[in-house]
């Protein structure tokens, strides 16, 4: 049985704002009967202020789909359309005290219905670019279509890389075989495509050089530190979304020491988070650096001295 929070159950058993809304002037239909989830969101928008006066829903779907729809209508009531467009699926999930990873798509559907309804009100076309595959990584709720997309776009070849890019496989590791299968399928696709002759004829000895990162102009110490800071700053919002954070403590040649904060602290995924950040730093700097928890700082530096 799914591990539904009290709040999910409560919203499922007593859905708020269910049923058609008379004189709705914004309607968003998303989902499909094939997937087993579909939602019609109906809004009554004040034309003067663009404020949502009332919101109703009709949902075909499981317990969490109905609860997410109910939560969505409660969240958006009273917001202006622009404010409502800022509502993220995470907010819907948070409102319900979280959803099981396999059910996060229910909150995504809520956000999409909102976008569709606003587009409908404004007379715009709304196209969904959302695809969904089978859940591969249950720890981080990553599905096969996201993994495929990232693997194709970045030419990834190893499970470790997939973990760095998507977090998939960074938790209990039980999906590694599934990720390998996806990698194998995509690599098979690549091989069936005609290979450029130059690549096919490249002697093996030079192969490692081809794989090395393209040399970048050497950075000054100051530029290098700035680059590290910028990279980490760009990552922080993602961690903050999961109620975590990271802070740079010291940069000592190849070693970058950081403190993981908030939810990241003591999280069983700590190592995966660190290696993910490290991969991005390596990419940004064009040189190898090692990301270490600040707790190792004195030990390492002491040892080196």
């Amino acid at each position: 049985m799914w591990d539904y929070s009290e709040k999910v159950q409560e919203h499922f058993f007593n859905p708020r704002n269910a049923g058609p809304l008379q004189d709705a002037n914004a309607v968003g239909d998303v989902g499909s009967i094939q997937c087993g989830d579909a939602l019609r969101l109906m809004l009554k928008v004040d034309p003067e202020s663009e404020r949502i006066l009332d919101a109703h829903f009709q949902t075909f779907g499981c317990g969490s789909a109905i609860a997410s729809s109910s939560a969505l209508t409660e969240i958006v009531k009273g917001l202006t359309l622009d404010e409502a467009l800022q509502v993220s699926n995470q907010q819907i999930a948070d409102y319900l005290d979280g959803l099981p990873p396999e059910k996060m798509h229910c909150s995504v559907m809520g956000r999409e219905a909102l976008q569709a309804a606003v587009a409908n009100y404004r007379g715009e076309a709304w196209a969904d670019d959302h695809t969904e595959g089978a859940m591969v990584c249950k720890c981080f709720a990553v599905d096969s279509s996201l993994i495929e997309e990232v693997v194709r776009a970045n030419g990834l070849t190893t499970v470790e890389q997939v973990t760095h890019y998507t977090k998939a496989g960074g938790g209990c590791c039980s999906c590694h075989e599934g990720i390998e299968d996806i990698l194998a399928d995509i690599s098979a696709e690549r091989c069936t495509a005609p290979m450029p002759p130059a690549l096919a004829e490249t002697p093996k000895e030079t192969a490692p050089a081809e794989c090395a990162p393209t040399p970048k102009p050497r950075l000054t110490n100051f530029q290098r530190m700035r680059r590290i800071e910028e990279t980490i700053e760009a990552i922080r919002p993602m961690l903050q979304r999961d109620h975590g954070d990271v802070e740079i403590v010291e940069i000592d040649s190849r070693n970058v020491y950081v403190n993981l904060q908030g939810a990241c602290q003591g999280c069983m995924m700590e190592q995966a988070t660190l290696s993910g950040i490290q991969a991005q730093l390596v990419e940004a700097l064009g040189e190898f650096v090692q990301l270490l928890p600040a707790s190792l700082m004195t030990k390492r530096q002491g040892g080196a001295a």
Partner: peptide, 9 residues
């Protein structure tokens, strides 16, 4: 009523 035809499959 408008038939329910959501926008993605």
């Amino acid at each position: 009523t408008a038939a329910f035809k959501p926008s993605f499959a």
